[in-house]
Design a protein around this nucleic acid. Structure first.
Lengths: 114, 114
DNA sequence: ACTTTAGTTAGCAATATGACTAACAATTCG
DNA sequence: CGAATTGTTAGTCATATTGCTAACTAAAGT
């Protein structure tokens, strides 16, 4: 079976606007927790949970120096998710002709009114 | 912030192995609920919840004819997720200039490509 | 009509998620 | 030292997720 729990964690990490925003911001460069946190309207511990989730999912790395923890993107982390999506895209688009064929058969059914 | 709840739902839909497997299977062609359900080791109502989630998230379409409900992929549904990931990849790799170019090709849709 | 097939609905339970406050380090600055 | 800064941990709460069973509807088959 394709029981790829890495993809579970990856997509789960991306399924939250706070975490996507963190990633987008980190794309412009590493940043401390406080800097990252600044634009968000939530309590710091809540924010830290998101950071931890990103770290657990391998999307970011963090290192602490003194009191400051610096967060950095792991550049290759999205690759498996992108790979899955690309795989699907190729399959989906490969069957596009059949889809149109199927939709044509649907029109012949009795459910023509909504 | 970019509070894009469409991406929330999309990534959430993909964050489950059952749902990814359904999508992968549907990529090979439309199928009835019973056919789709066959390889899974769970109760049918549990499975139906996944199907409903995929439908609510716009990833599949279903139509019922007689007692049989047929499920079909919505081919363009993954595009926003793919777009976000590609956007991030370009940012992460520091190629901000190519972003606009890529986004332009997205707008043309996959079926305009030869 | 009765049965089988195909799917649906309702309701329950365990766990995960995402938020909060309060209290606690640990480091740095005056 | 004492105080501010930076982050962490613990504990709580509401809701969402994901699974189940049992009972049900609707269409076909015999």
């Amino acid at each position: 079976m394709t029981n790829n729990s890495e993809l579970d964690a990856l997509f789960q990490s991306l399924a939250d606007p706070t975490r996507r925003a963190i990633l987008a911001r980190l794309a412009h460069g590493s940043a401390s927790v406080t800097d990252l946190f600044a634009p968000f309207d939530m309590a710091l511990p809540s924010f830290l949970q998101h950071l931890r989730k990103l770290e657990d999912g391998g999307l970011i790395e963090t290192t602490k120096q003194g009191r400051v923890r610096t967060c950095t993107l792991r550049v290759g982390a999205l690759a498996p998710a992108r790979g899955w999506m690309e795989e699907q895209r190729l399959l989906w688009e490969g069957r596009h002709d059949r889809l149109e064929d199927y939709l044509a058969t649907l029109l012949q059914g009795p459910d023509t009114d909504g």
